[in-house]
Design a protein around this nucleic acid. Structure first.
Lengths: 336, 336
DNA sequence: ATAAAACTCGCAAGCGCTTGCAAAAAAATG
DNA sequence: CATTTTTTTGCAAGCGCTTGCGAGTTTTAT
């Protein structure tokens, strides 16, 4: 049976309130008494009951981490960094896997409006459903969105600049001497995907390279999608020689397809991927990618949320992080 | 401001206690009153304050998930399945990444002895440090160990039969007509690794194949370890033609090494890996592995812990799950 | 009909902590 | 030294819920 405040108070020969104040560094307790109390707290390794504290203070020191699917490659990095800063600031993070189930999502969001957690971080795609958010949340609920956007809702959001990433990727291919570049992407209706498409287009445009709809292959984002995407892409009148592929799994499929076709990378085709799951560095050849700073993403998100909770409102509502190009083995300068 | 029990009681025109009993399905409240109350609860979407409930009942409905490193490939599967059953049974899981830091681990374990969570699941390697466990835990603390062993401590444990897995792997290689099999493994001092070594030996022995210390390569378990392991292994007098490699990352390194050496898989060397991170199915050639039923692992662990919490003590203290062989492309029958 | 048993329900205490307020003690002032 | 000011401390209420117990009500048995 753990010790209680009362026990400590009795041992120290002071009132509970004094102990409480001492522990929480509140003013109104003499230096001497404080020392004495802290020594006892130390000695008995006293830790206040979080439930009671939560009840009294109406804060839980917990944040919810709402994700559609924990196993998404790369997300573990985000989770890890979120956990790290949370832990560091005295918060626990409880993980909420929604399996893309709106009901589960709503239920989890309810946790924040019911003050079961102090706030929530929502990661990923379809989650930022406006209706769901509207329905489940109150005005004063604290949440931050990561890598997804709930337009018009004025919800703090951290995201990685997909446009810039795509721009980088495409420019890089062009710099290698490639002009016929196909983009293998997920659904255009996904905001982040459409941003990538924009970046791709802009890059081409700014380099005076004609843009050709034939080179745009929309897939379901899966490995198979990438695989089939290759064969779709090479149906174009002029064979594309560069690929910008917007997702890890698609990239893997694409590489499979290219190899299956008997071609070589990067000799026959150059590829730039997008994302930074471990996988891409492991496959052979190692994929040149636009890497997302996932740790930073988690870091900012957690920091932001905790600032919100501590009522130190952060500066910007939307924080955009820059991706960086990681050169590996799927691109190389073309010899003309 | 969320509704409270008192509000509901007022609305329903009954006492708080009655509402409480109704909500918790406790006896002592008439069917009619109960209906009425439940209707109101429904209508107002009332959810009891978890803090208060926790305080009063001394249970938190939270379990801690203590892991050395969340990003370990494959662990996301365990986490996901744990979260799934926890959610299903009305528990939240809070994740605790220790970074292999014993102090952090101790701190997290304190959460259970301080009743901040109802129990904990500890996943993975060095965590089951007897001293730490002893120090941090009380007799009545509820924890279950996953894939690690705290000998002599009588702590419920779920693990995957490494011995059997290694046995399977080795036998499979032998069945392909391979006799000179090297094992690329992590540290012998790791319990699970040593079990794998045992399984390997036993398999050879049972098939009357001589066992040769030269074929045993101990590494640090990393990708580089696997890479270097290959070159170490082929120093043997007689070239091994089969490899049993006990970890994903090592397997990747090993494959790299073999390719670098200009050899082909599975023509020159056959490989059986161990583990079931996504990675192994993605690399080329896809790795034949002893797959660990990670989802089941999480599932059992969570179920076990919650049973413990609900005081329905499960049958066995130690549950051993069987791994299965997944045939892919790194082994094939040898033509003699 | 009345006594006994069986339910239903409400009162009130308590879970362990925080915090406003007042009392007591210490320090500063005239 | 008395008085005011400041600091230190303790009392007690309250956070929202659970639960033992007793009062009130209904049912069953006699």
């Amino acid at each position: 049976m753990p010790l209680t405040l009362k026990d400590i108070a009795r041992i120290a020969g002071v009132a509970e309130s004094t102990v409480s104040r001492a522990i929480n560094n509140k003013p109104g307790v003499g230096e001497e008494t404080k020392q004495k109390i802290m020594k006892i707290v130390e000695e008995y390794n006293f830790q206040p009951n979080q439930m009671a504290q939560g009840l009294a203070k109406k804060e839980t020191h917990m944040i919810a981490l709402i994700i559609s699917d924990i196993s998404t490659p790369g997300y573990n990095k985000i989770i890890k960094s979120i956990e790290a800063v949370a832990d560091n600031r005295g918060y626990n993070v409880i993980i909420c896997n929604t399996d893309n189930n709106l009901d589960k999502e709503k239920a989890y969001l309810k946790m924040v409006s019911n003050n079961r957690v102090d706030g929530a971080i929502i990661i990923g795609g379809e989650l930022a459903d406006k209706n769901v958010l509207n329905l489940a949340l109150n005005k004063e609920d604290l949440i931050v969105l990561v890598n997804c956007l709930a337009e018009e809702m004025l919800i703090p959001t951290i995201l990685i600049d997909s446009f810039k990433g795509a721009f980088l990727a495409t420019s890089h291919l062009v710099e290698q001497g490639i002009e016929r570049i196909a983009i293998i992407m997920g659904s255009r209706s996904d905001y982040l995907e459409s941003e990538k498409l924009n970046g791709y287009q802009q890059a081409l445009e700014s380099l005076d390279i004609p843009y050709d709809e034939q080179y745009i292959v929309e897939t379901d984002g899966s490995r198979e999608g990438g695989y089939n995407g290759f064969f779709k892409a090479i149906e174009a009148e002029e064979l594309p020689v560069g690929f910008f592929v917007t997702g890890d799994m698609m990239a893997i499929g694409l590489i499979d397809a290219i190899k299956t076709g008997g071609y070589f990378i990067p000799d026959d085709f150059s590829i730039v991927g997008y994302g930074e799951s471990q996988i891409t560095s492991i496959i052979n050849p190692a994929l040149t990618v636009v890497a997302e700073p996932l740790e930073d993403l988690g870091l900012y998100a957690a920091d932001y949320l905790i600032k919100l909770i501590d009522e130190k409102s952060p500066d910007e509502l939307i924080k955009v992080l820059d991706p960086v190009l990681k050169l590996r083995d799927t691109t190389k300068p073309q010899v003309k």
